[in-house]
Structure formats: structure tokens, C-alpha cells
Design a protein around this nucleic acid. Structure first.
Lengths: 190, 190
DNA sequence: TGAAATTCTTAATGTAGGTTAAGAAAATAT
DNA sequence: ATATTTTCTTAACCTACATTAAGAATTTCA
């Protein structure tokens, strides 16, 4: 399982065998059954998770009980409650598995303490954060400038595999519309 | 001018005098008159800017000619077209000055090449990216779960100084509503 | 395999926020 | 100081998307 993470790191910052060994000992494997929480609103987050298999999501629940999905994490993606991790405070984010999943857990403490020994890892995470920020900004632009229909089409382009593996209502939640309205949009497209 | 940046870096990762000297030589000072572009859609971004004084913004222009603001950068903030910087491709972002401003420019090439010599700088930018990502996710949540009125109130809490220094229509653009509707919301509040 | 739970669809009705337009106020330039 | 441009406000009307409800399809699990 750890091999998948090592490969991912290698694809971004080449690391040597010694460093690989250290990383191998840093992470914990974990199976996450469908619907099982990895993190719940109100807790202080202390781990990031790398998805080896399956798909997780992070989301908030508003006052009316509606879920709003912040992130999907299919294979090879990291997921965490970055706000809680960084501020060391509880936040409103939940993280759970949409599909039966396998993840690697890395504690924040381990993560930041290893950076002095393996600066390449700090580079790896800097690059990931920069990419995630660019993607998040793009998502904001989509909200500000596109109709629901166009946001759905962009979503399909961006996550082609997810369309068939996760419930439609989760897609609706991510693009910011109701499942009923998504259903209507899909009907229009034939 | 550079002192302001040094102070900001020191507040996040303590650096020694030698490192300070290197940084001092890395950045270029620049005055940016109101409305002057720092970056235009279609160009490949090659600089990040640290705002010493004034306020910049990044935004897109949609097919109907409407502007959508992605980021405000008041004093002590960095602003860039992260997508373009990271992918080395042109994007749809413009960056210009909302107020008469002074910035420090750091080229991406300088930035990434200095990380091997000053790992603390890579840490500084990793931390900034993580914070920006957490903030961007929070903004996404606000979109998904709040009404325009509540988004406006959150904006006022988050950027109390901006409310009186930048045009209202810019705030409307940032929170994703028309200036007319913002005007209406404000009238309701007395 | 079959009952229960979850998800998806359709359709009627409702509303937050958009559009258009025109005048008032404020900022900027001459 | 005055003319010009930009921004803000108000109000009537409009629309994209939400809400509600109920049945159909699919998935889950005993």
C-alpha cells in the first residue's frame, strides 16, 4: 500500500532509498468502510490521509441539515481538514468514505517534524498546497461566473471517473445545487 | 520597504541576518498606480507580489464582461496568479491595483531556486499556501451554505478595513452578487 | 432473495437574487 | 471650481434555481 504513496512522491520530488525508508515508517495503513468517519466536526484534526483506494470526501452540515461537499479525494489524493490542522482548532468539517477505501494516515506532528530531516518532503507538500490552492481558486471562479449547468459540465470533465462511482446527490452538493435540479439538468441533456 | 517583508517572514519563520541579506537582494520594489495592471489575462505569470502599501486584486472577466474578484491583497499579503505560476501557462486572471500601491516583486524562478539555499523560505511559502488553502476552502463553504446577506456580513468581519477603502461594487463582485443587490442588502440593515 | 433504505425523477409552485433603467451622489480630472 | 466619469441607490419586473411532494428505480443488507 505504501508503494502507491512513494510513487506519488517520486513523481513530484525524486527521493532516495534512505528517505523512502523513513517515509515508510511514518505512515499508518487504515481501511475505511463506506460511510465511516475519518474526522468529525468539532474535533481538532491531527492527521492527513492519502487515499490508496476508494474515495473520501470532506463536507460541512449547515443549520438546515444540508451537506456541502468541500473536497472529493479519489485514489492518489490527500485529504485533510487543513483549517483545523493549521490552526489547531476544531472546525466544522467532516471527513468520511463515500466508497470502501484504503488510506495512509500521516500525523501532523510527524509531518512537520520530518521536514528538517527530509526537506524534499516539505517541497512535496508545498507543491501540493500550491496546486490545491490553484484548483480551489478555479472552483471559486466557476461559482462566480458559471451557471449550474456549466458547473456540472466542468465537473464531468474534471472528475470523469467519479461520475459513475459516487451518488449524484454528492455531485449536486459539490457544485452547489439541489439533487432535484441536477436531475432536471441531466434530463435536458438527453 | 523590504523591511516590511522581512518582518512578515520573521513572524512566521525566524531567519538570521545572512538570510535576510539574500532576501533583500531577491526582490524588486515597484510602485503601482491605481488601476495599473501587474498581470493580464493571457500572459504567463512569472512574479508574485508582496503588498507593502495599498491594495491589489485578482479577477476574471466573463463572457458578458462582468468582473469576478478572486482575491484582495491589502498590506502584508502576497498576490499572484498561482495557476499560471505553477503550470507555466497563461490563465484568465488579471491583477491590478485598487488603490495607489507599493509592492515587492519576486520572480518565480528566483523563488524556487532559492529554496535549496534557504529551506526556511520554502517553509514560509508552504505555510502561506496552507493558510491560503484553508481560507479558500472556507470561502467555498460560505458560497455553498450562506445567503448573500450572510456572506456580506462575514466579509465585513474578515476585511473590516477594506469596507471603507474599496468600492462597494468590488465587494459585491467578491461575494458573488450584483452591486444593485448589495445596495439593497445594505439599505435593509439601516 | 426479498424487504428496507437510499437515491433518482418529475412536476407544480415559490423566492433569492438578477436585470433594466434612471436619477443621485461621490470621486476624479481639467 | 467645474465638467466628466465612476459609483451608488431605488424600484419594477424577471429568471435560475429551491422547495415540496410523491412515485420509481436502485442499492443495501438480513
Amino acid at each position: 500500500m505504501v508503494e502507491k504513496l512513494i510513487q506519488h512522491i517520486q513523481s513530484i520530488v525524486p527521493i532516495d532509498e534512505e528517505e523512502v525508508e523513513i517515509i515508510r515508517e511514518l505512515v499508518k495503513e487504515k481501511n475505511v468502510p463506506r460511510k465511516r468517519f475519518l474526522h468529525q466536526a468539532g474535533e481538532v484534526a491531527s492527521y492527513s490521509a492519502f487515499v490508496v483506494e476508494g474515495c473520501l470526501r470532506s463536507y460541512t452540515v449547515d443549520q438546515d441539515g444540508f451537506e456541502h461537499i468541500v473536497q472529493f479525494a479519489p485514489e492518489n489524493w490527500w485529504i485533510s481538514d487543513m483549517y483545523s490542522l493549521v490552526k489547531n482548532k476544531p472546525s466544522e468539517l467532516n471527513i468520511d468514505a463515500l466508497l470502501e477505501s484504503k488510506v495512509l494516515l500521516l500525523s501532523r506532528t510527524c509531518q512537520v517534524s520530518i521536514f528538517d530531516r527530509i526537506p524534499k518532503l516539505e517541497r512535496y507538500f508545498r507543491i501540493l498546497s500550491e496546486n490545491a490552492l490553484a484548483a480551489s481558486n478555479q472552483r471559486t471562479i466557476n461559482y462566480l461566473s458559471l451557471t449550474a449547468k456549466l458547473r456540472y459540465e466542468k465537473f464531468c470533465d474534471l472528475y470523469p471517473t467519479l461520475i459513475h462511482t459516487i451518488p449524484q446527490k454528492s455531485i449536486a452538493s459539490y457544485i452547489g445545487i439541489t439533487p432535484e435540479f441536477l436531475s432536471k439538468l441531466r434530463a435536458e441533456r438527453n
